[in-house]
Amino acid sequence: MPLSLHAAYVPSALQMLGTATHLIDTAEKWGVENECSEGEIIGTRVFEDMLPWCYQIKCVAEHTQGSIEGVRAGVYSPDLNPPPTSFEALRTKIAGAVDAMNALTEDEMEAMIGQPMRFEFKDRGMDFTAEDFLLSFSQPNFYFHCATAYNILRMKGVPVGKMDFMGRVRIKA
């Protein structure tokens, strides 16, 4: 039996959304224990020209829930609004994406296959099919932003390891 688009996308999206939630919780706890303010953690960047930790967490939601909304509309443009600036607001953003992913059905996702999809950013655009957008653009992006959020916490000294990034793997029952 071939792998469905739902099976190829949704479980991985949920895994990284779970990782993002875990990173928020871990960052908050570490901040309290180490007298590091919420604002300092949320605003940390790897390099000055990179976007801050809160933006990385926001993008995990944007490239899961936001990408599905884009496929439904036939066009996706990044949300350029400022990211949430509190742990609680970030949790709420991620929770909304989890709810959206859990609400997707296999039938709905299979019906997306072959639909035209356009990514637009400023004066650039790329045309995709829905499945190619989700699997070759959206999915690498949610992994990238989740890994960057993880790396920022490592850089700050937060004791997170590989399993904190991996999250809930789908082991054989």
Rank of each mutant, 00 (worst) to 15 (best):
M1H: 12
P2K: 13
L5R: 04
L5S: 06
H6Y: 15
L14D: 11
L14H: 14
L17C: 13
G18I: 14
L23F: 11
D25L: 09
A27Y: 02
A27K: 02
K29I: 05
W30V: 02
G31F: 07
S37T: 14
G39C: 03
E40P: 03
I42Q: 04
R45Y: 03
V46Q: 03
F47K: 10
L51N: 04
Y55N: 06
I57A: 01
K58Y: 04
A61F: 04
E62M: 14
H63L: 05
Q65C: 09
G66W: 06
G70T: 09
G74M: 08
G74R: 07
V75W: 11
Y76E: 01
S77H: 09
N81R: 15
N81E: 15
P83C: 06
S86P: 06
K93W: 06
A97S: 14
A97M: 10
A97L: 12
D99V: 13
D99M: 11
A103Q: 13
T105I: 08
P116D: 14
P116N: 13
F119C: 05
F121L: 13
F121A: 10
M126A: 09
D127A: 06
D127M: 03
F133R: 00
L134G: 00
S138F: 01
P140R: 00
P140H: 02
P140I: 02
F144L: 02
H145S: 01
Y150W: 02
Y150R: 01
L153R: 00
M155T: 03
K162C: 12
M163E: 13
M163I: 14
F165I: 11
G167M: 12
R168W: 10
I171A: 12
I171Y: 12
